[in-house]
Design a protein around this nucleic acid. Structure first.
Lengths: 325, 325
DNA sequence: TTGAAAGCGCTAACAG
DNA sequence: CTGTTAGCGCTTTCAA
């Protein structure tokens, strides 16, 4: 492998000059530049990135941390990556499988200079364990963080409004009883959705259902169990509202296989408006999930002084399809 | 940021000893080790990876190259990543968006020592442009490479057999006319599928359809255009066989929205057996796609002398669901 | 406009 | 069992 010194010798200049050509920094005469460029081409030279990184103390590499690689995660990763690439950053993906130690290992790479910043999609450690790492580089998350004292930026959108919109739309189309399939009970989004539901019930003077059995539903198994509960209920709800297209897809799939008619017997609504909701033809709440991924990257770039990139506002739009009236 | 020298000073030993503790190499007395470990904990030290990488000339990082980040790609990336992680490798994702230059840039990172190996899922450059990079590290692909002279390993599975299995199953269940929706005309998989179809036609003495209009169908738009062609045909086929679950999902979705009954009016078969085929309830050909991702990683690891890891054999199994008899 | 030289933080002979 | 030393390949003062 050719090194910078090989190029220097070949071109009859010093390594410093070659470096200047590579990085387009400092003064180099047009002639010298040409000679050096020819040498680089001749020897097929590519600078050793580790040496550059060691010298510079930066890598132009972002870490993406997640606990799984499912569709909703991917929907953010893709636009994030694209935006990062355009700003000349690469992305290294870390799947923690919900293992706190793996997450810490990945965060350590911020410390070891291997990562310039982190896009934390799902976390498994406590914020208090994560926050100290912001000393070594910016961390951006999707979580709606409640503690403002934390030095962690977020590109969240308050799900309260979106959830309310769904409920109101269902109500206007005749639905009077609802079941909410909710995600992680610790998440702020879940809390906001619950609040939206309770507020809605109060406004319309209806009695809210016991949300407890429908909390922490994320897996397919969990979803099917929740559906079983529904079967056991004396009166079926008019509508089921979920927290993700993934969970909605499990439900819609199950209902179709069991010839339960939507929306006649029951309406089903997803959240995220991913491709699957279009393919499976179910109603879903859109909130510019791709823009959210790009915003995460913009935030990171801004923190690193590469910006300023203006964040694009996110907004809710209900995409109505075959599972609602 | 604490460096190895800080630790050395703090512990009253040399940097070499600290290095030995970090890497668990050479001899270190239990006492010294303890002192050093305490110093590391005290100063919250994490070794600078660039320095390590520069020194070692390796990174324990694999590049994953793809031209898009859709479900079938993800289905391989996920198991690949997991396997790599377990072998203590990280993975950096490169999305080329079919831009040859981006692909070359990523390949250059093999040269610049930033990547120890590459999992090339989709390529955009000619093999002749890619092959020279194997000098700098192993490259593994999913493509069924025709040129054996290339130093590129592959974890392909010959689609001929799988395709034949689909056709025979449909035939046995009464289908007599078929339409094949085919992928990239340059791909070996496509050629093998066509061969399977032609052989099948000869065996059963039926006339093959003109495959031309159904070649290079990968996008949703392209798929819908292909469906339009079907509508214009005087007699409808008994079955549509696709090259991927993605394309199949477009078709199934379209037919359901237009109340075309499957399998009564027409049967539809996918390829890959991804979750979507289960959710949307369509028949699909399984060939251990996840194992294929793992095999790719095993191959890479073997090339780097980290093995030997035995490759798991892949096999075809037709997952029959609601869109076929 | 160019070159010499120092050093980023670490590892691996080698010597003791 | 431990320390000394050289150097991985690059960038960046500083001096010329």
């Amino acid at each position: 492998m050719a090194t910078i010194n090989d190029i220097a010798k070949h071109a009859g200049v010093s390594a410093a000059t070659v470096s200047r050509v590579i990085n387009d920094s400092g003064y180099v005469s047009t002639e010298t530049r040409k000679i050096v460029e020819k040498a680089i081409a001749d020897l097929n030279y590519v600078p050793n990135r580790h040496a550059q990184n060691l010298r510079r103390g930066a890598t132009r590499n972002f870490g993406i941390l997640t606990s799984s690689l499912e569709e909703p995660v991917l929907a953010r990763i893709e636009p994030f990556m694209q935006f990062a690439n355009e700003a000349n950053y690469t992305t290294t993906l870390f799947n923690t499988y919900n293992d706190p130690q793996r997450e810490i290992n990945a965060l350590d790479r911020l410390k070891s200079k291997e990562l310039d910043g982190i896009f934390l999609i799902y976390r498994t450690n406590e914020w208090s364990a994560i926050e100290p790492y912001t000393k070594f580089g910016p961390i951006v998350t999707l979580h709606n963080i409640e503690r403002v004292d934390l030095n962690i930026k977020s590109v969240f959108i308050d799900h309260y409004e979106g959830y309310k919109l769904i409920l109101e739309d269902l109500w206007q189309n005749g639905a009077r009883s609802f079941i909410n399939i909710l995600g992680r009970s610790t998440g702020v989004n879940t809390k906001r959705r619950i609040k939206a539901y309770f507020d809605f019930c109060e406004e319309h003077k209806i009695k809210p259902h016991d949300i407890h059995p429908f909390l922490d539903i994320t897996s397919r198994k969990g979803t099917l169990k929740a559906i079983e509960l529904l079967d056991e209920m004396p009166t079926k709800p008019d509508a089921i509202i979920t927290h993700s297209d993934q969970v909605a897809s499990f439900i819609v799939s199950h209902f179709r296989k069991h010839d339960i008619e939507m929306p006649e017997e029951v309406a089903v609504v997803g959240f995220d408006n991913l491709i699957i909701s279009d393919l499976m033809d179910f109603t879903s709440m859109d909130y510019s999930i791709k823009e959210q991924g790009r915003n995460a990257c913009r935030l990171l770039l801004n923190e690193l002084g590469a910006g300023p990139y203006e964040l694009k506002p996110l907004q809710f739009t209900l995409s109505k399809r075959g599972t609602t009236k």
